[in-house]
C-alpha cells in the first residue's frame, strides 16, 4: 500500500483515497487540424512504460478531489516527488 503525500491537503494519506490517472505531461498538439496522423496517434494512444522513474498523474478522489503529479519508481514503487499540476519535476531520469 502506498503512502501518498497530497500537495493540496498537505499530508500523507493511504493509497485507497487516490486514483492513478496515467502518464503526466502529455502535451496536446497545438494545432490538431494540421498535425499528422502519427502525431495525433502518439498523443492519443502511445504511453511510456519505463523501468525506473515515471511521472504520473494522481487524483485525490475521496479527499480534496484535486489532480497532481507524482514521480514514482516503477521498480521499487518509491515515490520520489509530488508536485502540483502545471509545475515541472525536479527529479528526472538520467539520460
Amino acid at each position: 500500500m502506498l503512502h501518498i503525500y497530497c500537495p493540496h491537503c498537505c499530508e500523507l494519506r493511504e493509497e485507497e483515497e487516490f486514483h492513478a490517472k496515467g502518464q503526466a505531461h502529455i502535451a496536446r498538439p497545438l494545432d490538431p487540424d494540421n498535425c499528422t496522423d502519427a502525431e495525433w496517434g502518439n498523443y492519443v494512444f502511445y504511453r511510456k512504460n519505463p523501468r525506473g522513474l515515471h511521472h504520473e498523474i494522481w487524483y485525490h478522489s475521496t479527499g480534496c478531489r484535486k489532480f497532481f503529479n507524482v514521480t514514482r519508481d516503477t521498480q521499487t514503487y518509491a515515490i520520489k516527488e509530488v508536485y502540483k499540476i502545471g509545475e515541472q519535476p525536479q527529479v528526472v531520469a538520467e539520460g
Partner: peptide
C-alpha cells in the same frame, strides 16, 4: 476536517 474512504463509501 478530512475527506476519506469510510466503510467502502466516502
Amino acid at each position: 476536517v478530512a475527506g476519506s474512504v469510510f466503510a467502502k463509501s466516502t
